[in-house]
């Protein structure tokens, strides 16, 4: 029977992981602008980026735009 307790403990562990991921995504601003994110992913990067410095300097912005390279 104790195997069920192990499994329960594990399932809660996984579920808490997802809860934390959700909270992180809200805090990270992923729910701020659903439309913007949905079109941004389709933009093509036709030039090599030369502004990586600018993006690492600003932790609050620009994380999603790195996902542009499809």
């Amino acid at each position: 029977m104790s195997v069920i307790l192990v499994l329960i403990a594990f399932s809660i562990f996984v579920a808490v992981g997802f809860l934390i991921a959700f909270i992180w995504s809200v805090r990270n601003g992923q729910y701020d602008d659903p439309y913007g994110s949905s079109v941004r992913i389709l933009f093509e990067d036709d030039k090599p980026r030369d502004t990586t410095v600018a993006e690492t300097q600003l932790p609050s912005a620009g994380k999603e735009s790195q996902s542009n390279q499809i």
């Binding site: 602008d33 439309y35 913007g36 502004t51 600018a54 300097q57 912005a61 620009g62 735009s65």
Partner: peptide, 14 residues
């Protein structure tokens, strides 16, 4: 300009 980011819902750009 180093970097700019639009918030479409609020029509804002940072």
């Amino acid at each position: 300009v180093q970097h700019s980011k639009v918030n479409f819902g609020k029509k804002e750009v940072v």
